[in-house]
């Protein structure tokens, strides 16, 4: 029975570590993207800035700075989860199974804030994804006077890519939740 558990754990850990590291990278990219948006906004006419800022917040649910914070926190969180899983993987490979009990406690502790707030995180990210996916349609309704050709092109061509990136992140978070719970169930 114990052997079966360790066998399953040794199969599950590498994929989960990889997935958590990818999420950490993806969340970092998201924070970079929002940071670029914030920087780009400084170059827009002063009377347009407050409206774009407000539109972004009401569309995505959070201000740009709040998104940067959330994305960076998520990235750090998943790096911590990946590190905790990695430690368990090392102890398992080295047959130091007595140390696994402590590893499971550590995994549970670092994963708890994510698991507890999973639904809200997914809901918030999905809203951001929808906002980006709808950007090309919104670009059509803004007259030339208020939107440069360069910005219009950006909205039409780049926003769907960002939406796709967020969608992948949401899917990865969903998979991560399942895998982490599965790892935790093997303690």
């Amino acid at each position: 029975m114990e052997g079966e558990k360790y066998e399953k754990l040794s199969q599950l850990l590498p994929d989960t570590i990889k997935l958590c590291s990818e999420i950490a990278d993806g969340a970092k990219q998201l924070s970079e993207g929002v940071r670029n948006f914030k920087e780009g906004l400084k170059k827009k006419p002063f009377f347009v800035r407050p409206f774009v800022t407000r539109d972004f917040e009401s569309g995505t649910g959070l201000k740009a700075d709040e998104w940067i914070d959330l994305a960076e926190r998520t990235s750090r969180r998943f790096q911590s989860i990946a590190d905790a899983l990695q430690k368990a993987q090392e102890h398992l490979s080295a047959s130091e199974k007595e140390k696994l009990t402590e590893d499971f406690v550590n995994i549970k502790t670092v994963a708890k804030p994510f698991l507890d707030n999973y639904d809200l995180l997914i809901e918030t990210l999905s809203r951001f994804q929808k906002y980006m996916a709808e950007a090309p349609e919104r670009a059509k309704s803004i007259p030339k006077t208020f939107l440069s050709e360069e910005d219009r092109k950006m909205m039409v061509e780049e926003s769907p890519k960002a939406a796709e990136g967020i969608k992948k992140l949401v899917k990865a978070l969903d998979e991560a939740k399942t895998k982490i719970l599965e790892v935790e169930s093997l303690k």
């Binding site: 774009v52 917040e57 009401s58 569309g59 995505t60 201000k63 919104r138 007259p143 208020f146």
Partner: peptide, 11 residues
């Protein structure tokens, strides 16, 4: 801008 950038959502 409210006309062209209608945001129905709330923070």
């Amino acid at each position: 801008l409210e006309k062209f950038m209608p945001s129905k959502g709330k923070p």
